[in-house]
Write a protein that binds this DNA or RNA. Structure first.
Lengths: 338, 338
DNA sequence: TTGTAAGCGTTATCAC
DNA sequence: GTGATAACGCTTACAA
């Protein structure tokens, strides 16, 4: 392995000068610079990042912990994070939490090993009550639902407002019985409960009474969405609108409705949440809530870098909520008026 | 920042003993072990990974370079890689190449910075001719199409055979004019040309003459697939089968056919390639070639770890091809026989 | 403009 | 069983 002093020897200078050349410091004569770069090329020298990290105390790596990178939502988020990180000179290590509390806790624990300069964690389970789990000495931004108003820097999306707008949209287009697929009112507060609250609010403001059997809890996956529809139709529950808590669920719901011989949008109107790429190309294409992912990722980086410079914001935690907007597509656009 | 010698001082032992306790070495008395672990907990000590890396010469991180992590195919691959890495005690840093030659080259260049213990790179552009670009002193496995039989360790999939089987399947189910969406015969050899070759072989063995206008080059994206169908119908080209080079393309083709008022599978039969998660849930669900991703990822890790132990396999490069299999679903299952 | 010295935190070696 | 010592390769002072 060729080291800096090997290069120094070959170029007839000191290691320090080699370092200066590599890091583009001023006050290096052109002649010296040339000798050094020539030696670097000749010997095929590369800086040892581990040594540099040890010395500088930083790694140039941002950790990204997501439930499951195979999920379209996570994958598209990761793509944004990686791109933004690249723009700012960082690399990204991806970890999976498996959408489990344990996974999130251990990702946070690992963040304290100084393996990363900072961590962006998409939290599903951890919330304000778990603030103690978040290390105070490592920059961490929670990209998610449950952490709000507490001691942890966080970026969230307009879960409540988005779901409310989607539900209003369904009601405005004539739906009388709107199901909330993936919805849930009890348990830990999170994306599921917040979006469900928005759904309920929209129903109530329209004077509709939420029906118990139209609230169908399920995982945020396509398989679960399809299964939820099967369960509803098997139970003989009629509905003419489906406010799905995520696009993945919605794609499964489209599938399930097709299996049940129901047409979208003529028999049932469907909305999703996230605006994943596939939503624009499904058959029918999916009306959905776009939660401003780009802005969220940019905000997360701003927070992370701010924390790196000013390690402890003893006081206030920073917060940002993405700008949401309803994207109307075929799944809620009736072809024949009724 | 609390270091190992802080712990040592607090526990009244030497740093070496702390290290021994942390790394679970034998020959440490229970009493000492207890004192040390107690001090570690009390001070909240964590090992400094950078220092350990410098000392050990390894990072515990595997690099994964893919065209675009937002693409379902890449995302699902990444999920497999991350899971396998976790099982073997590694973390994964994801880089995007942007499906560009330049991106692939620079990922390889970075791999020489010893930031990673090894690199898995999904190559689209680099091939045997570029063997010189692959560093000899860093374990690299090419997960892809173009590198075969050369000096670079590589894992590939049965591009030719898979596309041939898909095309045979379409012909067997009565298609007379099968389009190859994303197909291409010229230019750099890669997944596109290999799959196209399989398609052409199947046509020829069935005595069908490949038609120029049925070979429709396009990007491996859903948007491109939809556009390809629009172009075909606009040009008045009739076809009753579509062998799509990837599932993403196929999902776009389903969309495009819906726009054109053509039914799948009654008017046109469609196949994909990759067996991404969405393929089982699209409407209609997608017949596709499953290329044995799990086995491919496991093989890639075996190669990588082998290279870490035996740095230079001066001679032979290792190679593995995933087991492929056609998964038949609705998109090629006629409801009414003709 | 360049070089010297010291040390970042950890661990392998070998003596005790 | 435990500890002193010496690296790993690089960079921040400071000196020349």
């Amino acid at each position: 392995m060729v080291t800096m002093s090997d290069v120094a020897k070959a170029a007839g200078v000191s290691a320090m000068t080699v370092s200066n050349v590599i890091n583009g410091h001023p006050y290096v004569s052109d002649a010296t610079r040339l000798k050094v770069t020539e030696a670097i090329d000749r010997l095929g020298y590369r800086v040892n990042v581990a040594a540099r990290n040890l010395r500088s105390g930083s790694t140039g790596v941002i950790g990204l912990a997501v439930p499951g990178i195979g999920q379209p939502y996570c994958a598209e988020l990761a793509a944004l994070v990686i791109a933004e990180a690249g723009r700012r000179g960082y690399r990204v290590a991806v970890e999976e939490t498996g959408a489990s509390r344990e996974g999130e806790v251990s990702a946070l624990a690992r963040s304290r090993l100084r393996m990363y300069d900072g961590l962006i964690i998409s939290t599903v389970w951890l919330g304000d009550a778990d603030a103690a789990v978040f290390p105070a000495d490592v920059p961490v931004v929670a990209l998610g639902e449950r952490v709000r108003g507490g001691a942890v820097d966080h970026v969230s999306m307009a879960n409540y407002e988005g779901a409310r707008d989607a539900t209003r949209h369904l009601l405005a287009r004539g739906c009388r019985r709107v199901a909330a697929i993936g919805g849930r009112t009890g348990g830990e507060e999170g994306a599921a409960t917040l979006r469900t609250a928005g759904y309920l609010a929209a129903l109530r403001e329209a004077g509709a009474e939420p029906a118990e059997e139209l609230l169908v809890p399920c995982d945020f996956t396509t398989a679960a969405g399809a299964a939820a529809v099967r369960a509803l139709t098997a139970a003989g529950v009629a509905f003419d609108g489906a406010m799905c808590l995520t696009d993945s669920i919605a794609l499964g719901v489209l599938r399930g409705l097709a299996d049940a011989g129901l047409d979208v949008p003529d028999d049932v109107l469907v909305t999703g949440f996230d605006d994943i790429g596939q939503a624009a190309y499904s058959v029918p294409s999916l009306t959905t809530v776009a939660p401003g992912h780009t802005e969220m990722v940019a905000a997360a980086f701003d927070m992370l870098l701010a924390r790196m410079r000013a390690p402890r914001g003893d006081g206030e935690a920073m917060a940002f909520t993405g700008p949401h907007r309803l994207v109307v597509r075929e799944s809620t656009t009736r072809r024949r008026p009724r």
